[in-house]
Each structure stands twice: as structure tokens, then as C-alpha cells.
């Protein structure tokens, strides 16, 4: 082959590759999507005590387990409120199971805590479990497409259109908060809420702290369902005047697996 022709082909080939790759990479940089996890949260505090100075909003919950113990109907009410508004399917089997919020026993929700010689009531105490909307979320770190990401208000979001279903986030979540659509969920949604989509098979889903309701000035569905009893209190953790902040100041609360440094936004009154 003629030398100059070979050279030309080489250059043309390289240009073509660069031409295909560069715009997509550039676009996503321009869109400002590079910061997948929150910058201010990355400084880990020793013993989980010292958090970075709060910047902006950070939504969170305080969950009062005693309120749920006092009223056995409260947990199903919250779960139903969430699952019906978000078209969460019910497959009736454990293999396909999808859940956004559910009850756990104390031992399973807090596996690092001891129950030895503790109050008998602890064994049956219902703990509402859901996505912890961590300030330092391992799932967001793991996601290869930014399909799950941290909103500036602290909500760990899901973009169901972008998820490729690799389930890396499910392996990364230390709270078992994520579910996968192992099959088409549509036939298993009991009563469709026409105001919210369902999901398609092959994507991961979880609690999104009702970002769509917050945008309309509503409370998250679970918090609203337990409003009268105060079982789930919702608000901005960074606002010292919010109800959650007041409760947190007053009561002793715990978080799930604080030693992992994920900084959950969900607190429990036991």
C-alpha cells in the first residue's frame, strides 16, 4: 500500500473514533452531571459524630417505632399509602418481590445491635424500613450510568429511563432497600394510580421520598398516612426550625449501620 494513503487512512480512522466518543463525553460534562455524589458529604467524621456544615436542604425522616407498636394498623396503612400511590406491584412471592417501605423486626433492621438481656418488647417492635437516602450513598457511587443520583435536597433519586439493570446498586446498598423488576410488573399492580407511572422489567426501583409529591407541596405518602399519630415525621434536617430537627434535638434516636459512614437521613426513636 502507498505510504501516504496508509497515513491518511490512519488519521481518518482516529478522527472518526474521536468524533464519535468526544461529543457524548463532552455533553454529559456540560450537563453538569459529573458530580454524582454530594461533595460536602465526603468528609467522614470519626465515630459518625461530626458532620460537615449543612449546606442547602437535606430531607429526612424521624420514625417513632413506639407509635407503630402502639397501633398495629399504622404500618400497613403507611405501606399501602406508599405502594398504591407509586404503583408498586405485589407478586405474592419472595423471588420477584418489590417493596419500597416495609416492616422489619428490630434484630433484622439493626443487626449490629444486641438484643441480649434486653427488653422483651424489642423482639416484636416493628421497624419501618425504607431507603435511607444516605448523605454518602454507596449505590450512587456504584451506578455506572448515573441512573441513581443524589439530588441537591438530599433525595437519592432513580431515573428509570436510564437504568440498565446491572444491579450493582443492589449489591452496594447496605440496607437492602432496592428492588429489581425481574419481570413485567404491570399485571401485578392491583390498582393503578393514573397519576404515576409503573416501571418496566429490567430496572431497579426504590423509595424516592415522594419527590413528585414534594414538588406539588405535599408530604411523602407514608408521612401523610401517619400524620395524626406522628409515627413518621418528615422535614428538612438542615433547617433547625423544622419539626424533624426539633424532635431530633429532644429525643434519643439511632440510625441503621452508622459505622459504614453512609450517613443515613432516616432516624429511629426506639
Amino acid at each position: 500500500m502507498d505510504n501516504s494513503r496508509r497515513k491518511f487512512l490512519k488519521i481518518a480512522g482516529l478522527t472518526a473514533i474521536a468524533g464519535i466518543a468526544a461529543p457524548t463525553a463532552f455533553n454529559s460534562l456540560l450537563k453538569g452531571e459529573v458530580h454524582a455524589s454530594s461533595g460536602e458529604a465526603s468528609t467522614a467524621g470519626h465515630g459518625g459524630g461530626h458532620e460537615a456544615a449543612p449546606v442547602g436542604k437535606r430531607y429526612g425522616f424521624v420514625i417513632d417505632a413506639q407509635k407503630f407498636a402502639a397501633d398495629p394498623g399504622l404500618a400497613p396503612k403507611c405501606i399501602n399509602a406508599c405502594h398504591s400511590v407509586h404503583n408498586v406491584p405485589d407478586f405474592g412471592n419472595k423471588k420477584d418481590e418489590i417493596k419500597w417501605i416495609w416492616t422489619e423486626t428490630y434484630a433484622h433492621a439493626f443487626p449490629d445491635e444486641s438484643q441480649y438481656k434486653r427488653n422483651e418488647a424489642l423482639h416484636t417492635l416493628p421497624i419501618m424500613t425504607l431507603c435511607n437516602h444516605c448523605d454518602n450513598p454507596p449505590c450512587v457511587r456504584a451506578c455506572p450510568t448515573k441512573a441513581t443520583f443524589r439530588n441537591p435536597d438530599g433525595i437519592i433519586m432513580m431515573d428509570f429511563h436510564r437504568c440498565i439493570g446491572c444491579r450493582f446498586c443492589m449489591a452496594a446498598c447496605p440496607y437492602g432497600a432496592r428492588s429489581f423488576n425481574w419481570r413485567d410488573p404491570r399485571p401485578f399492580v392491583k390498582q393503578e394510580n393514573p397519576e404515576y407511572p409503573t416501571r418496566m422489567r429490567g430496572v431497579v426501583e426504590k423509595c424516592t421520598m415522594c419527590y413528585e409529591r414534594l414538588a406539588e407541596g405535599l408530604m411523602p405518602a407514608c408521612a401523610e398516612a401517619s400524620k395524626e399519630s406522628g409515627g413518621i415525621i418528615f422535614g428538612d434536617l438542615n433547617d433547625p426550625a423544622s419539626e424533624v430537627s426539633m424532635v431530633l434535638k429532644e429525643k434519643f434516636t439511632i440510625q441503621r449501620k452508622p459505622a459504614l459512614g453512609t450517613k443515613p437521613s432516616i432516624f429511629y426513636i426506639i
Partner: peptide
């Protein structure tokens, strides 16, 4: 095997379309 394991294989190229350096899967690819 990776492709067989994806829930949405048609979207596999999202990994290139939205490059995410904090994901180890991106580097593995």
C-alpha cells in the same frame, strides 16, 4: 456474560453515553 446479566441490554451503551468515573463498573468496561 455481562450483557446476559443486564436487565435492559438495549441500554448497555448508556455506560458510554453517560460516563461515570466514580463507578467501578465503568472502569471495568
Amino acid at each position: 456474560f455481562i450483557l446476559a446479566d443486564l436487565g435492559q441490554p438495549m441500554r448497555a451503551l448508556n455506560v458510554l453515553l453517560h460516563p461515570t468515573p466514580n463507578s467501578i463498573l465503568f472502569w471495568d468496561m
